[in-house]
Structures are given as C-alpha cells and as structure tokens.
C-alpha cells in the first residue's frame, strides 16, 4: 500500500516575534503525528529560503516593510490555501502600535535616544528592506483564506486548526481556543 500524499506546508514570520512559531513547536510530541500528514517547504524549521508550490501557507506577523510584501506575495502565488496566524498577521498587532508615531521619530527613539545608547546610528545599509510608515495586517495586501487568531494561538488551537484542514474539514475553534491575546 502506498502512503497517502503528504500536504506540503510553508510557514514564515513577517512583522512578528516568532511567538506563533514557538507555539507551533509547542505542539510537542504531536509534531510527529503532524509529520505523518504534512511535510515542510519554506519555513524557519527547514531553513529553505524560497517557497515552492504548497498546499498550505501559514503566515505569522503583519507587513512592515518592502521585503514582507515580497515574501507575502510569494506565499500567495505558491500556496493553495493561505492562513493568517496570530494577532499581528490579522490586525497588525503590537508592531501596529507605532502606526501613529512618525517613522523618523520612531527610529530616533530606538537608535539615538534609547536608554543606554551612545553614539547611536540609524541603520542605512542598502540591503536592509525599506520600512513602511505604517504596519498593516496581511489581508490588506493579499487574499487570505483562513484566520487563526491568538497572541499566540495556543498549541492546541494550531493543532486543531491544522488537523481540521489536513482532513479536509472547515477549521472550527472551540470557545476556549478562540482568543485575541
């Protein structure tokens, strides 16, 4: 008997803190069960740098710079189903707290006036992605198929969501798994 074809999954973190990915790892030993039905493409877990054709793309974090948009569009182009995971991808989250602060003032505060800084310099390397004046949720840039809220979503919520999706069911979160913080 041949093994059923595994779902190919890509994940990335844009303007996020990797907390959602930590929560993904927090599935613990169930990761072994998960790996029976999925295989990872581009992801911090595999360290593959570009996204190939995938069944599911999971995006953590909002969009705060030009590179974020590039990666997000690459995911949308390659993934049949695109999931916004966590508060930042869905609402902009904590990084969006800067949306009413002038970007230059923000840089000055971080690199010049921050406590303990001496001779601070604002990074200006041409390789650094261009920051945006505001942070946006990813559904304001590309079409998103599913939203998995939480800061981060709990390991149980991620497990429930992924197993529903892998089994071809409409993902459904129980009351206690749905939270925005």
């Amino acid at each position: 008997m041949t093994e059923p074809k595994k779902l190919r999954v890509a994940t990335c973190s844009l303007a996020g803190c990797f907390g959602c990915h930590m929560s993904l790892l927090d599935i613990d030993e169930k990761l072994f069960d998960l790996l029976k039905v999925v295989e990872f493409d581009r992801s911090p877990i595999t360290d593959i740098k570009t996204c190939g054709p995938c069944d599911i793309g999971i995006v953590e974090g909002g969009v705060c710079n030009a590179e974020n948009v590039h990666v997000l569009k690459e995911f949308r182009k390659n993934c049949k189903v695109l999931v916004a995971m966590g508060a930042c991808a869905i609402t902009g989250g904590i990084p969006a707290l800067r949306n009413n602060v002038d970007l230059w003032d923000c840089f000055q505060e971080v690199y010049h006036y921050g406590i303990g800084l001496e001779n601070g310099q604002i990074p200006n390397d041409p390789e650094l992605p261009l920051p945006f004046d505001k942070v946006h949720p990813i559904n304001e840039v590309v079409r998103i198929d599913y939203f998995l809220p939480g800061c981060p979503p709990s390991a149980d919520a991620i497990w429930q969501f992924l197993t529903d999706l892998a089994a071809g069911r409409e993902p459904k979160l129980d009351y206690e798994m749905l939270h925005y913080d």
Binding site: A84, A87, I90, T91, G92, G93, I94, A96, L97, H136, P137, N139, E140, I144, Y146, F147, L148, P149, C151, L173, Y175, L178, H179, Y180, D181
Partner: peptide, 30 residues
Amino acid sequence: HICPSCEKSGNCQLQAVAYHLDMLTPHFTH
C-alpha cells in the same frame, strides 16, 4: 483595539461579544 497590549483583555465586553459571534478577523481595512 490591540488586545495583546490591553489591560482589559479577557474582561472586555467588546472582545467577549466578538468571541460570542465567532469573529476570526476584523476583516475591514484598519
């Protein structure tokens, strides 16, 4: 409404009503 940084989170009626209505995303442009 940035719930992760709000003191009222968990005790907030706006959030609780959103949970009750199974709101997964604010959907509209912020």
